[in-house]
Simulated scan of single mutants.
Amino acid sequence: MKALLIIAHGSRRQASNDEVKKIATQIREHGQHDFDIVESAFLELASPLIPEGIEHCVKSGAKQIVVSPYFLNSGKHVTEDIPEIIAEVKAAHPDIIIEVTPHVGSSPIMLDLILKTASGS
């Protein structure tokens, strides 16, 4: 089974965390993807944290987990913190394939998204 784990920073504002959870739900319900499991997790300030999110995917039967950092910029969290957490979790689950995608903000479609949003379309 293949899982997608969307990870965000986490916020003291619950509504912000709920937005990330809603994205995971919408992707899960979308159906036009090759993931059996779609979940969300957070770096800090919210639950579940990244290791807990990965554990949930593993307990749900995932043999491969694609971690997608829902971050706009490649700051310390993206370049250092997340890779360190993933390395620790990989060590605990050597039989599970865990890969991290580039952060969302680095996507080439981001330019089109910004322009469409700015033009109101």
Rank of each mutant, 00 (worst) to 15 (best):
M1P: 11
M1N: 13
K2H: 03
A3Q: 05
A8G: 15
A8S: 15
H9Y: 03
G10E: 10
G10N: 09
S11L: 05
R12G: 14
R12D: 05
Q14L: 12
Q14A: 13
A15I: 08
S16G: 06
D18V: 06
E19V: 10
E19T: 14
E19M: 07
E19L: 10
E19A: 15
K21V: 12
K21P: 06
K22V: 06
I23K: 00
A24V: 09
T25Y: 07
Q26M: 14
R28C: 07
E29M: 06
G31F: 02
Q32Y: 10
Q32D: 11
Q32V: 12
D34I: 13
F35H: 14
D36H: 12
I37E: 01
I37Y: 03
V38W: 01
S40F: 02
S40M: 04
F42C: 00
F42S: 01
E44H: 08
L45Q: 11
A46I: 03
A46V: 04
S47E: 14
S47H: 13
S47A: 14
L49E: 03
L49T: 10
I50S: 02
P51G: 02
H56P: 05
C57F: 13
C57V: 04
K59W: 09
K59G: 07
S60W: 05
G61F: 07
K63C: 13
Q64E: 15
V66K: 08
V67L: 15
Y70F: 12
Y70D: 06
F71E: 02
L72F: 11
L72H: 07
S74L: 05
G75I: 14
G75V: 12
G75W: 02
K76N: 08
K76L: 08
H77D: 03
H77Y: 02
V78F: 03
T79I: 07
T79D: 04
E80W: 00
E80Q: 12
E80N: 09
D81T: 14
D81Y: 04
P83T: 05
P83N: 08
E84Q: 14
E84F: 03
I85E: 02
I85A: 01
I85P: 00
I85W: 00
I86L: 14
I86V: 14
I86C: 01
A87D: 11
A87K: 12
E88G: 07
A91Y: 09
A92V: 04
P94Y: 09
D95S: 11
I96D: 00
I98R: 00
I98G: 01
V100A: 04
T101G: 10
T101P: 05
T101C: 09
V104N: 03
S106G: 12
S107M: 07
P108Q: 10
I109G: 08
M110G: 07
M110L: 15
L111F: 05
L111E: 08
I114S: 03
T117V: 06
G120V: 06
